[in-house]
Amino acid sequence: MLSKSHLKALSFIREFIVHEGYAPTLSEIALGIGIRSKGVVHRYVQALAQEGVIELHAGRKRGITLPEPNKERDMTLPLAGRIAAGRPIEAIEDQVRVDLAAFFIGPGRFALQVCGDSMEEAGILDGDMVVVAQQEHAADGDIVVALIDNEEATLKYLRRNPQGDISLIPANSAMVPMVYAAERVRIQGVVVGQLRTYGKR
């Protein structure tokens, strides 16, 4: 996943190529984005190349080029199923893929479509897509994908209670938290992004 610093370097490289007609050197990039270390710039450039937003040509002083406009990149994540935002429902794997912006792409990330209104006060509405970072640990207050009894998945705020059980808390004042013994709940991921289309659904 590209950081703000990576994107700043990418923006400078693109603008430099457009205005000068050739690529900047590492020293010129460092000067242009306001850092001193060419080593840091080198790491930025390598990361940009790994993401496919620039191309590197070994042995050339100005060996950076931009990809051809018609070069296709896979900017999708698997739509892993539908996730309950009301009563828990089974999360069923799907073959559909969802196009996402580059900053949503990362190792272990996947998309889920929200069903229900239990997270509406957190701004997560029925039909929205959430982007989830797959991980088994989460902090209290995170919005998590929780698997209950290895059968049902739900999207809720996580809270660990002093007595050792776990509350899965909706963001809907008309609903009550669901409380489970800790061994019944397995964290599958933490929400890191959200997508919504407007108009007809």
Rank of each mutant, 00 (worst) to 15 (best):
L7R: 14
S37F: 04
A174G: 13
D99G: 13
I166E: 07
I89F: 02
E28Q: 14
G189E: 00
A91V: 13
M1S: 15
L2P: 12
V96R: 11
Q194I: 01
L26K: 11
I54T: 05
L158E: 02
H42W: 09
L7P: 05
F12K: 06
E51S: 10
L66V: 12
A47F: 05
G39I: 07
Y198A: 11
G193I: 00
E151Q: 14
V45M: 05
K4F: 13
G32V: 01
R196T: 04
G199H: 08
R73T: 02
Q95F: 08
L158K: 01
A138D: 05
P24Q: 06
V18R: 14
R109W: 00
L48H: 11
A171Y: 05
V179G: 01
P88H: 01
P170L: 01
A139V: 00
A174Y: 14
Q95S: 15
I13K: 09
H57D: 03
D74Q: 13
F104P: 07
P78I: 03
K8Q: 15
S118V: 11
A85N: 05
G86P: 03
C115K: 14
Q134A: 15
T25N: 11
Q113M: 11
P67G: 13
I166K: 03
Y22R: 15
P162T: 02
R186S: 14
G108H: 00
V114T: 02
V190Y: 00
I148C: 06
E20W: 07
A182C: 04
L79P: 12
G127L: 04
A85S: 08
G108M: 01
K156N: 10
V130N: 04
A146T: 01
V132Y: 03
L77I: 00
I89T: 15
S173Q: 10
E151L: 15
A85C: 09
K156A: 05
V132T: 03
S173V: 04
Y22G: 14
M178T: 00
Y157H: 09
P67D: 07
G21R: 04
M75S: 14
G63E: 04
K38T: 15
G106E: 06
R201P: 07
V145C: 15
R43M: 08
